[in-house]
Amino acid sequence: MDWFPLANSLRIAALSTAAVYVLGIWLADGVAKLPPALKALADVALTLPLVLPPTVVGFLLLMLLGPRRPLGSLVLGSFGVRLTMVWYAAVFASVVVAFPLMYRTARGAFENFDETLADAARTLGKSESWIFWRVKLPACRTSIIAGAVLAFARALGEYGATSMVAGYTPHVTATVSTTVYQLWQIGDDGLALRWVLVNIAISALALFVLNHLEARDRAERRR
C-alpha cells in the first residue's frame, strides 16, 4: 500500500488547521467588537462555507486562483507559482471549508468569557493586548483547542472543493478522500476499503480527543 495519500492528507490538514487557528481566533475577536449591523453581516459571510456545498467553494476558488484568474495569474506571473492542481491548492480549499468550525467555536468561547475578568485587569493597569493573551485566551483555551481539533477533522475529510482545485494526480495531489473515489471508479474495492478504514480510524480518533476535551472543560466548570 502506497502511503502518499495519507501523508499528503495529514500535511494539508495540519497546515490548514494552523492557518484556520490564527484566522479563526483573530476574526472571532474582531467580529465581536463590530457594531451590531456589521457584526450580523460579517458573521453570515464567515459562516457561509459551513453550509455551502463544497463544489460552490471549489468553483469560487477556481475563479480566483486559476492560472488565468486575477490572483492565480498574478502569482503565476510574479513568482512562477501555480495555485491550482498542486498539492498545496488543497490547503486553500480546506482552510475555507474548515474555517467556520474554528471561528464559531472561538466566538462561542469569547461570548461566554466573563468580562469582569477583563475589567479587573484594566483596574490593575493592564493593556488590552495583555488581557487578550494572558486572561482571555487562557480562559477560553479548552474550547479553542476543541475548535482546532474539529477543524483538523473537517480538513482531513475535505473532498469536494479539494478535488476541484487540486484534482487527483497519484503521488502529487492525491489525498485519502480523492484516492477512495479514484479506487472506487476503477473498481479496486479492496484497496478503497482499506483507505476508508484508515480515514474512519483517524476521524474517530479526532472526535475522541474532542469529547475528552469537552468533558474536561465541563468538569472544570463544575468545580
Binding site: A120, A121, R122, G125, A139
Partner: peptide, 30 residues
C-alpha cells in the same frame, strides 16, 4: 483617563481572580 491609568483598586463582588493563574501569579499581576 482609561481605567488602566487611574490607579484605582477595585474589589469585585465575584472577586474576578484570573482562573488560569495561581494565587501567586494573580497577586504578581497587580
Amino acid at each position: 483617563l482609561p481605567a488602566r491609568e487611574r490607579n484605582v483598586g477595585y474589589l469585585f463582588q465575584s472577586y474576578a481572580l484570573f482562573p488560569t493563574m495561581t494565587v501567586e501569579q494573580n497577586i504578581a499581576c497587580g
